[in-house]
Design a protein around this nucleic acid. Sequence first.
DNA 1: AAATATAGTTCATTCATTTAACTATTAATT
DNA 2: AATTAATAGTTAAATGAATGAACTATATTT
Lengths: 149, 149
Amino acid sequence: MLPIEIKHLVDQYIELSFSVNKNGESLVRDQMNDDMTSDQHYTLRYIYQIKSCTPSDLAKKFQVKKSAITAMVNRMWKKGWIQRTRDEKDRRVVYLTLTEEGKALYMKTEERIHQLVGSMLNNFEQEELKQFLCTYQKLQRVLENYKQT
Amino acid sequence: MLPIEIKHLVDQYIELSFSVNKNGESLVRDQMNDDMTSDQHYTLRYIYQIKSCTPSDLAKKFQVKKSAITAMVNRMWKKGWIQRTRDEKDRRVVYLTLTEEGKALYMKTEERIHQLVGSMLNNFEQEELKQFLCTYQKLQRVLENYKQT
DNA sequence: AAATATAGTTCATTCATTTAACTATTAATT
DNA sequence: AATTAATAGTTAAATGAATGAACTATATTT
């Protein structure tokens, strides 16, 4: 590939990922209750899917320090969405789970987000969408590898 | 498309956009000076490209309230990266431009980010990448339309 | 001339994040 | 077995990012 052409594709990717993120985040936020933030919803989602996890798991998933997780979990714990339980065998470890209220809130919000994203993705042919997601997935794996190096 | 298949594609998109964003942001942050944040670099980029803009332009681009922009511009102005000048004809309007220091800092950081993104995108065939960016662009336009509604 | 709209700022509050220091517990080493 | 290392998590102080409401100044509309 000619360097100048690579440069153009890189520019395009940088610009698109910026604006798709900003606009997407903004639309997603509109689907949420006023007492919840995007990060808090993502946290609910992760714990809901995996049933139970540790603060360290969340730190890795969100690419932030553990102290940031402590703070976020505290806010969500105060609102009654998350529970903490100690591991009996290794008493350093904390398990995070959703309360019934946390689960209910998650499902209500996630339903709205699915509606939104679903109607957006409806603008694409199935094949185009599948191809897009396939490349997106490859990109994710490339990013995973970069993290380690 | 069968509803269940749509649901799976939506799930996949939500998961991928989350993790690509978080990991990507994290890698991009690693390319930056310690006295700069991602948002600050994006701000430098936007002003650099468009030469001059108003706080309202930035608020629209970043999808935040104008008061958030005032705060961010203040932080960057204190560091000597941004200048403010009043429009002589309409004295309500403020134009933001980069100082020489701001430009130099932007170019240095952007160079590193381009290296990173370039070497990431190097993992893809040119055709696959072009197709991906094409769909990404369509997605951006879909999002633009949603904002208005 | 008065009322309304626009551009931007200020202020108080909340959330998100990092760094450094710390507690408690477990694992490794000597 | 006792000491040292490492691990999991929290606390506290500082900074950045975002909102909403109230405000100033200027322009536009009626």
